[in-house]
Simulated assay, not measured.
Amino acid sequence: MNDCLFFGLNKNPKLIKNKPKKITKPIQFKFENENENENENENEKQIKQISSSNHSTIFLFKNGKAIEYLNEEYSKQNPEKIQIEENIQKVTVGDDNEAILTKEGNVFAKGEDINPENIKEFINISSLIEDTNDRIIEDIVAGWNSIYLLTSNQNAYGIGSNYDGQLGNCSTCVFLLNSNQELFGCGGNFSGRLGLGESIKEERIQKLTKIQNIPKGKIIDIKCGNYHSIMLIENENENPKRKLYSCGDHQYNGLGKNEKTFEFTEIKSPLFENDDNILDFSVTYKHNLILTTKGKLISFGNNNWGELGTGDTNDQLIPIQIELPKLRFNENISNYHVLCGAFHKSFLYYSPPYFSNLEEDLIKLFKRKEFCDISFKTENGEIIEAHKLILKYRLNENRK
C-alpha cells in the first residue's frame, strides 16, 4: 500500500484517472494494478522516489524498477516501464531530458540535447567522461535542458544545452557545495536568484562564483525555482534547529516575503517556531512545499492550478498549512517526502527505509578506495562499522 498524495495540475491521465484538471486539495491515489495481486512482493509497490516535470513523472520503486508516465501532450498511452538492466538508485527529470543513476554507479540519460538522433533512447553518459577512474557517479540532477553528474571523486560534470555557457539555458541555475561548506553558483541569475548580492547585476553567470554572506550554520540543502532560491540551514544551539532562507524575486510569491532580496534572508512564520523542525522541502517553478517533523505540510507561492493544496486557486505570499487526509505519520514522519513537480504539480509520499545488499555496498566502497569510518545498518537493524567490513572483504578477496 502506498501513501501518496497529489494536488495541482492533473496532466497524467493514466495515473490520476477520472479527476478534474485542477485538483486543489490533496487526494490519495493508487497505481492501476495495486490491488490486482495482493500476494505481490511489497517491494514491487513501495515508492522509493518520485521525479516530475512538465514532460513526465517517473516513479522509482523499492525493487529498483521505475515507471514513466508521460504528460498528456506527449502521450496518451499506458505508462511504460523503464528498461534498464541494472538496479535503479535515483531518477531525475528535466523539461525535455531524463537521467537514471544505477546502483553500479552508471548514468543513463535521454533527451533532445543528450541523444538527438533518438530522443527516446537511454544512453550511458557516464562513459563519456574521459577519465576512466572518475566514472563512478554518486549523484545526478536534471536542469532545464541539461544534466549534472557528481562523481565519487567529488568532481562535477555537465551535459546538454549550453545556451549561456554554463551548461544550462537561461532558466537553469546551479549550486555546488564543497566539503568546507563553501557555496558556489552559476547560471541564470535573474532577479538575484543566486544570492550573489545586489552589486552583481548580470543575469547570466557563466563561471562558478563563490556566494558570500551566507547565514551562519550548516547548509543542509539548497534548491532553486525560476525566480527564487531557498536554502535550509541547521544550527544545533538554536530552536528550531533548522531554518529556511530565500533570495530572488517575490513577483510569484515564492520568497515567503513581500520584497525582492539579493542575499539569503530568513523566511519567518509561526509555523516554524518552537521545536518543530523542517524535515523536507521542495522548490520549483513558482511554488514551494515544506514538511515539518510534527507532520505539518506547508506551502506558499503561485496557485493557478491548486498546486498549494489549499482547496482554492488563491496565491499565497506567506507560508500556509495544508489540511491533510489521514496518513501513516505515526509510523515514522521521517519516511515522508515532498516534491514540487515543475509546472503546477505537488506530491507528498511515503518512502520506507531502503537497505541495499550490504556486501555489494562494501564492494562498491572497496573499488573507490574509501576506507573512512562510516557505519551501515543491516536489514535486521544491526549497526556495523564499514572499515572493519571492508578489511574483512579484502581478506576474503586475497584468499580467492
Rank of each mutant, 00 (worst) to 15 (best):
G217T: 09
G248R: 05
L9T: 01
I50R: 08
S152P: 01
S171M: 09
I390P: 01
T172G: 04
I318T: 03
S269F: 10
Y336N: 13
K90I: 03
I374D: 10
E117G: 02
K257P: 00
S346R: 02
G8A: 02
L167M: 07
L196E: 14
G306V: 00
N35K: 15
Q321R: 10
N41H: 12
S246T: 09
E259D: 01
K48L: 09
S126V: 11
S146V: 01
T293L: 07
R242K: 15
S191D: 06
L232R: 04
D134P: 05
S152H: 13
S146M: 01
K260L: 00
S299C: 03
L5P: 13
S334L: 03
P20D: 12
I333H: 02
K294E: 11
F7R: 04
R242I: 10
E130Y: 11
P240S: 07
T102D: 05
Q49W: 12
L327K: 03
Q181T: 06
K286C: 00
K216P: 05
Q251M: 09
Y69I: 03
T132H: 12
D131Y: 03
I27A: 04
T57K: 02
E385C: 01
Q212C: 08
Y393M: 06
D249H: 03
G311C: 02
N97W: 00
G306I: 02
I383P: 00
F61G: 02
G254V: 02
D95P: 00
N87G: 03
E382Q: 13
N277E: 15
N380L: 04
W144M: 00
G64K: 04
Q77C: 13
K110A: 03
N41V: 03
I27E: 06
S75Y: 04
T92S: 14
I27G: 02
S346M: 05
E385Q: 06
Q166A: 15
L150Q: 07
K25C: 00
G94R: 00
E68P: 00
I384S: 03
P270A: 13
G217D: 13
N162A: 04
N63Y: 04
I27H: 04
I27R: 05
C186E: 10
T151C: 07
E236H: 11
D3N: 15
N178K: 05
A386T: 12
N274G: 03
A99V: 01
F6G: 07
S346F: 04
Y349M: 08
L244Y: 11
I16A: 05
K110V: 00
Y69P: 11
I363M: 08
K364Q: 10
D275E: 08
I220Q: 05
L389Y: 13
N115D: 07
F264G: 01
K76P: 00
F122Y: 15
T172E: 12
N303A: 05
I214E: 14
N43S: 15
N189F: 05
F29A: 07
N153G: 04
F122S: 06
L244V: 04
N87I: 08
G381C: 10
K14M: 09
T261F: 04
N145E: 11
F7C: 12
S356G: 14
L348V: 11
D312L: 02
P352K: 03
I82E: 11
L9P: 00
L60S: 08
I114K: 09
Q206Y: 12
